[in-house]
Every structure is written in structure tokens, then in C-alpha cells.
Design a protein around this nucleic acid. Structure first.
Length: 296
DNA sequence: CCCGGATCCTGCTGGC
DNA sequence: TGCCAGCAGGATCCGG
């Protein structure tokens, strides 16, 4: 489902509900939703401890309990939801109850998401792990995920340099969470449109400065989406309170096949890239060369 | 190592 | 009306 703006919207809601609350009980209804690396004793260790932080890096979310060496980590996959005090649902995979009587439910229709525990380990660069945390510790299971474009500790130059060394299509690189995280299929297309680049352009053709600009553009697009509460097309993509976000109204490329480009009026075309639907303006998203550009 | 494609699931939509 | 192929905001594994 959810890309960075949707996960951030959910994180804010979870933090508002749970910070300082003590876990009183939990229940698991779907074996698939809980990673096999875990045993229930790992979850048991959280019971009786208060929530200290609700953190996020890219699309990965985790809850730190006071005094617990492991974190409760959640990935929402394609259809995962975290809902607070929602009615029981056919696809409720796990629930977590707190001392105020409230319950956080993990609901996941397509079952690509999961809940697990993961040992907190030091971050590679010694800096705070992500949004919502000041700790320099990250769940080991998310340690391979790059910082995201909204992370003040992202090393922009380093990320761009690494991206310039791969020949894959620029959109594929944006979707690869090892370079920069948080971008999914919607925001990859929105970023390419905003940067006026054709998503099929080889990343290695863009040059480091241009790639820095692309990452910065992704950050701007996603920051606007966070401000709008994320992108919702349907009831599957809602915040912790079950409410939709409004960024779908501001989408400029994704899902707009046959509609005029907001910049030049040419009709947006739907293609396939890397097995994913891809929406592009064929006339103002050029190959990526900037003739007068500083990109080398 | 680097790349692209297949794969895991359920539910909804659109075309015949 | 009914059926079913195709598709969906993701991450990971595997073969070439």
C-alpha cells in the first residue's frame, strides 16, 4: 500500500495514540503475518512496558518499548493497515491492547505485510535511525534499508553517487530501497514527472548532480503528500483512525492515462516498466539529458 | 556482483 | 448475468 507518505501518516497516528501507553496484551490470528524468526516469547517481552517511540525509516515502521532490547517492527506490504479501535475485520492478523483500553489492530488483506520483533542495533553512521526517534539504534531487520529523502541525516551526495553507478532505468533505481527508501510506484512516477525525466532513462546517464536533484524532488513531492495525509483511492489506504488522505487530488502522472499533462497538455501515457504500471508525459518528460545542465 | 523477472496473496474490475 | 483474466501504493529471491 503504503509508500512513505502513507506510512508516515500512520506513524503519526500511532504515536498520538500509543506514546506512553503500556502494552497489556496481544493476540495473533494469522501465522503468516508474524515472521517465523519470532516466537511468541519475543512479543511477550513487550507486555507491561510503555511505548517510548514510534519510528520510521522509508516504509518500515517500528515501536520501541521502554527497556526492551528488541523493537516491534511492522511492514505494511501492499495492503497492510494499522487501525486503532476499529471493529473486528476479516483480515485482522494481530491485535495489541493497551492500558487505556484501546487496541491497535494489524489488518492485511493481501498478506504481504508482517509484524515481527527485531533486535535494535547501532546505526551504521551513528546518527538517529529515522523519523520519530532520537536513538542511534535501528531494528536489525531494517538496517539494510537506506535513509529516505525526508531524513535530515541522508547523505545526498553519497546516495546520488551510488545511483550513478547503476545502469538500470531511473525509476527502477528510485524503487530500490537500498539507494534511497520510501519511494513506491506512485511517488516514483510523480517524482519523474516533477523532475521532467523519462523514467526509462538509465540512472548512469544522469550524473550525480542531476540524481541529487531527483532525490530532492522526491522529497518535495512526498513532503506535500504527507501534508495531505497521504494518497487514498479507496478504503484500503487509510490512517489509524480509518480516514483517507487527499493527495490523490494532486497526482500529476500516476493513474492519469489519457488525461492531459498539467504542464504541457499532452496526454499522459501508461506503459510498463519493471513489471509496474508507469505513467509518463511523452512530451515533457525527456530522456534526462539537460543540454545546458551542470549535470556532467 | 549486477540485472531483470518471477513470486508470494486476496479481492475487485472490465471485457467477453 | 456470470465468469475469469488481469491488475493492485512491495520486497525478496533466483536464474542468467
Amino acid at each position: 500500500m503504503p509508500e512513505l507518505p502513507e506510512v508516515e501518516t500512520i506513524r503519526l497516528g500511532v504515536a498520538q495514540r500509543l506514546l506512553g501507553r503500556t502494552l497489556s496484551d496481544f493476540a495473533v490470528f494469522s501465522a503468516r503475518a508474524v515472521r517465523k524468526e519470532d516466537n511468541l516469547a519475543d512479543f511477550d517481552d513487550f507486555v507491561g512496558k510503555p511505548v517510548a517511540e514510534v519510528a520510521r525509516r522509508g516504509k518500515f515502521l517500528w515501536i520501541v518499548f521502554e527497556g526492551a532490547p528488541r523493537a516491534l517492527m511492522v511492514h505494511l506490504g501492499m495492503s497492510g493497515q494499522l487501525l486503532y479501535d476499529s471493529p473486528p475485520h476479516k483480515h485482522t492478523a494481530a491485535t495489541f491492547s493497551f492500558d487505556d483500553g484501546g487496541t491497535l489492530a494489524f489488518v492485511d488483506q493481501r498478506t504481504f505485510g508482517y509484524v515481527r520483533t527485531s533486535q535494535l542495533i547501532p546505526t551504521a553512521d551513528g546518527r538517529p535511525a529515522g523519523e520519530g526517534t532520537q536513538r542511534t539504534e535501528i531494528p536489525a531487520a531494517a538496517a539494510h534499508i537506506a535513509r529516505d529523502p525526508l531524513d535530515p541525516h541522508l547523505d545526498l551526495a553519497e546516495a546520488a553517487a551510488r545511483m550513478s553507478r547503476t545502469s538500470s532505468a531511473m525509476k527502477r533505481v528510485l524503487l530500490d530501497q537500498r539507494f534511497v527508501s520510501g519511494i513506491g510506484n506512485i511517488y516514483a512516477d510523480e517524482t519523474a514527472w516533477a523532475a521532467q525525466l523519462n523514467p526509462t532513462t538509465a540512472s548512469s546517464l544522469l550524473g550525480e548532480e542531476e540524481l541529487q536533484r531527483v532525490i530532492a524532488t522526491a522529497g518535495e513531492v512526498m513532503a506535500k503528500a504527507v501534508a495531505a495525509g497521504g494518497t487514498s483511492f479507496d478504503a484500503l489506504y487509510v490512517n489509524v483512525e480509518g480516514e483517507s488522505g487527499y493527495f490523490s487530488r494532486e497526482l500529476t502522472a500516476y493513474g492519469r492515462a489519457g488525461l492531459p499533462c498539467a504542464r504541457c497538455g499532452t496526454l499522459i501515457v501508461k506503459t510498463v516498466l519493471g513489471g509496474r504500471a508507469t505513467y509518463v508525459c511523452p512530451s515533457c518528460q525527456t530522456t534526462g539529458y539537460r543540454p545546458q545542465g551542470s549535470a556532467k
